Amino acid sequence: MSHDVAVLGVGMHPWGKWGKNFVTYGVHAARAALADAGVAWTDVDLVVGGETVRNGYGGYVAGATFAQALGWNGARVATSYAACATGAQALDTARARILAGLCEVALVVGADTTPKGFLAPNAGERWDDPDWLRFRLLGMTNPAYFALYARRRMDLYGATQEDFAQVKVKNARHGLENPYARYRKAVSVEDVMSSAVVSDPLHLLDICATSDGAAAVVLASTEYAKRLGLASPVRVSAVSTVTPTFPNTVMDMPNLSTDSSAAVGEPEHTFKESIARAAYEEAGIEPADVGVAEVYDLSTALELDWIEDLGLSGRGEAEQLLRAGETTIGGRIPVNPSGGLACFGEAVPAQALAQVCELTWQLRGQATGRQVEGATVGITANQGLFGHGSSVILSV
């Protein structure tokens, strides 16, 4: 059975700190996606919203919130939450109903407003919340967490702070021509290295910001796309939202250890690798088929990890690709041609959808000023925590 559904339209609201309600951003992105698709709002029969925990009750029922804001049209609604993989899980919900024949046209929307206190949306002690435990008991706020990943790359593979800075330089250059990016300014290695040390070895410019923003995608069956006259639309060929498989998956988190001795005879792989493997298997392709990637660069060092987790290079080889210019536009496997989170910052329920928007523009040949030439397959990657991960494969 083919898992393909058609991407009819994509749309975004520019990232920034605009101080408006998240619904404003979501409606803007949704209308842009509908216009791009050439589909009337009244033809949408499913709305899937990416939940945002920082925006009150409306954020918890985001599907209904966006349906109401666009004007009640009788569509079914659903709401998804999976931390930073929220947008991909929402996309998968829509895809599943389309493939089941229960829906023809689905609108998927993610939007966020990120006020101060981004990491503490709920007050009080939360002893069953791994984030709260990590922050409060271990002192592992996100920058410290990212720094452990970075230090691991330095110790295992000889990565340097200059390598990490080069990732920022590359992504900043990519983002210069992206009208939706928040930061559109070229930076140098010296700029990164002279910015404040946040958590050694990472500097301020190695770490992404938090942002307001939105992204939306209109999906339909391939048959519906043909009826609209779209002979070869961009297609969603796979959405992976797998959880780890015990004991064969190593939880690739520096502050946790896993005894994998029980996995005798089984190849050991990381959770992030397992996310990618499931996507490739579903799409029926290999990493060598991928021509462009949008990955989750919470820090510059994490982008290098993802290149390897996606199988785009061997383990410990990402720095070599970076230094050779192979991960920039014009190279063998351009990574984050949008500018990535380095240029956008995090708008959590929107970012996995923003990656899908970017890859759609890339595969259509519409990424003006940052176009990757000749790509026919693109892959995305995101990770929340503890089984909240995703990878989406798009193809033409």
Rank of each mutant, 00 (worst) to 15 (best):
L137D: 08
M12T: 12
Q166V: 00
V348Q: 07
R152Y: 09
V348G: 00
G26N: 05
Y25W: 11
L219W: 08
V61R: 04
L34P: 14
W306E: 04
A354R: 01
S240Y: 07
F22Q: 11
Q351P: 10
A165W: 00
L8H: 12
P179V: 12
D112Q: 06
N142H: 11
D163F: 13
V264C: 03
P14N: 11
S313D: 15
V356H: 01
L363R: 04
G101T: 12
F66P: 12
P349W: 05
R151W: 03
V242R: 09
D4R: 15
R227E: 14
G340C: 08
A78Q: 05
D259I: 12
K185L: 09
G316Y: 03
W15V: 11
T222L: 15
V290S: 10
S299K: 00
P179C: 09
L353E: 07
G369R: 07
Q366P: 00
I98W: 01
A69K: 10
D212P: 14
N382R: 08
S338D: 08
V5Q: 02
G71C: 14
S2Q: 12
G374F: 11
W15T: 10
Q355N: 03
A216Y: 10
R184E: 03
V292M: 04
W127C: 00
H203D: 02
V5L: 08
P201M: 08
V109A: 01
L99G: 03
W41M: 11
A69G: 12
R277K: 14
V217L: 05
G330E: 09
R136T: 15
A324V: 11
S2N: 15
P247C: 10
S195L: 10
T93F: 12
S299P: 06
F246C: 01
V27L: 08
R370Y: 02
I275V: 15
L312G: 02
R323E: 05
G19Y: 03
P115G: 15
D309K: 08
R332M: 02
S199R: 01
G291T: 11
L321C: 14
A33F: 04
N382A: 10
S194W: 00
E125K: 08
E281I: 07
A225E: 09
L302T: 04
R152G: 04
Q68M: 13
L321P: 12
L70C: 13
E319D: 13
A94W: 00
L363N: 06
G117W: 10
G316A: 12
R315F: 00
A32F: 10
V189T: 14
N73V: 04
L204I: 04
A262W: 01
N21W: 06
A75N: 03
K17G: 13
A342K: 13
Q166N: 05
A6D: 11
L91C: 09
R151Y: 05
L394F: 06
A216S: 15
H28P: 01
C84M: 06
T222D: 13
E281V: 13
T86H: 02
A100N: 14
V187W: 04
L298H: 05
D206S: 04
A165N: 10
F386I: 14
G265A: 11
D212E: 11
H203T: 07
G291Y: 00
Q89V: 11
V7F: 08
A375S: 14
S2V: 06
R277I: 15
V5P: 04
N336L: 04
A367P: 02
V39H: 06
N73A: 14
A29S: 15
E281G: 12
Y25N: 12
Q68N: 14
P14F: 07
E125F: 01
V217M: 02
G11F: 07
R54G: 14
G26P: 07
